[in-house]
């Protein structure tokens, strides 16, 4: 049981961090960013390049991922989403744009980094072993702690900084925020950059453990959507809850249902369908959006 809980917490921390960026972008701009997974992959490859190819320390790789993805997110918002949102009131337009960006990023990743699985050496060696009841490599513990620290930092930033408050106002009521003097364009761009940066940071963190490859983008986006549907789309606390719930469900399912084959995600999807039929707005979302 200790092992199941530890695995669930570890998975939950990384999932929550992935979901945070997606839900931030959704809450600010009402955009479902289908390219979120590809941004995660791009971040992983940036860290890989800095650490494995250039031989620089892991922390430099992480910072590089954060900066590159933040710049990429800002540019995508300014030159792609902003004009489309200004000209089209239809939600499908931004969805199609996001899907197009996902395909585009896949192609760019293939060109820049190739098709192979990539990884960087372990940041910390050794395995924590508590009497065979709980086994957890130290690098996973470190990544989980870093992920939780980043989540806490993000919450504090959104809660207490001027930029965070402006973004929360924007998320609550875009028109009212604009009337109160919030520069909507500026904070939308910052929000998108922050969301992309979070995706890049998770990619950078996980490249030390799971490695990274071209095909991880799509499934990552799907999992991120699952998490924000569980927690409630556009709600920060919902994304965190969704991440930890999905991580825990996966850990419990993989251990208890192992004897029945790969039915864990089948059970998760069925549970989610029933849950959404009862509470379509998710755990913490509001029925009116």
């Amino acid at each position: 049981m200790e092992q199941i809980l530890a695995n669930g917490l570890y998975l939950g921390a990384q999932y929550a961090l992935i979901a945070l960026g997606l839900t931030l972008i959704f809450s600010l701009m009402n955009v479902l960013n289908f390219a979120h997974g590809q941004m995660y992959v791009f971040g992983g490859f940036v860290t890989y390049t800095v650490v494995a190819q250039l031989g620089l320390p892991f922390i430099v790789g992480l910072i590089a991922s954060a900066v590159v993805l933040a710049v990429m997110g800002a540019l995508i918002e300014k030159f792609l989403f902003r004009p489309v949102i200004a000209r089209s009131k239809r939600d499908e337009s931004t969805m199609l744009l996001a899907a197009g960006i996902a395909f585009f990023l896949d192609a760019v990743i293939l060109l820049l980094f190739g098709e192979k699985q990539r990884g960087v050496p372990k940041v910390v060696n050794g395995v924590f072993n508590w009497d065979m009841r709980l086994i957890m490599p130290y690098d996973r513990i470190l990544i989980a702690v870093l992920a939780i620290a980043l989540i806490v930092g993000f919450i504090l930033f959104m809660q207490y900084s001027r930029t965070g408050r402006a973004m929360r106002a924007l998320a609550q009521d875009r028109v009212a925020a604009q009337l109160m003097g919030v520069d909507v364009d500026r904070y939308s761009m910052i929000g998108f950059a922050l969301g992309a940066m979070l995706a890049g940071l998770v990619g950078g963190l996980l490249v030390t453990i799971t490695g990274i490859n071209l095909g991880m983008g799509g499934p990552t986006s799907i999992k991120a959507f699952l998490m924000i549907m569980i927690g409630g789309a556009g709600v920060i606390s919902g994304a965190i809850a969704g991440g930890f719930i999905l991580g825990m469900m996966e850990s419990i399912g993989l251990t208890l249902l192992a004897a029945y084959g790969d039915v864990t995600y089948l059970v998760i999807f069925v549970t989610l369908m029933i849950f959404l039929a009862i509470r379509p707005q998710g755990l913490m979302g509001k029925p009116w959006g």
Partner: peptide, 18 residues
Amino acid sequence: DSVTYQMDTTDFTPVLLP
């Protein structure tokens, strides 16, 4: 011979434990 995993699994610890 019954344990399987999703192709997009990011943590194989719970998969391999049993």
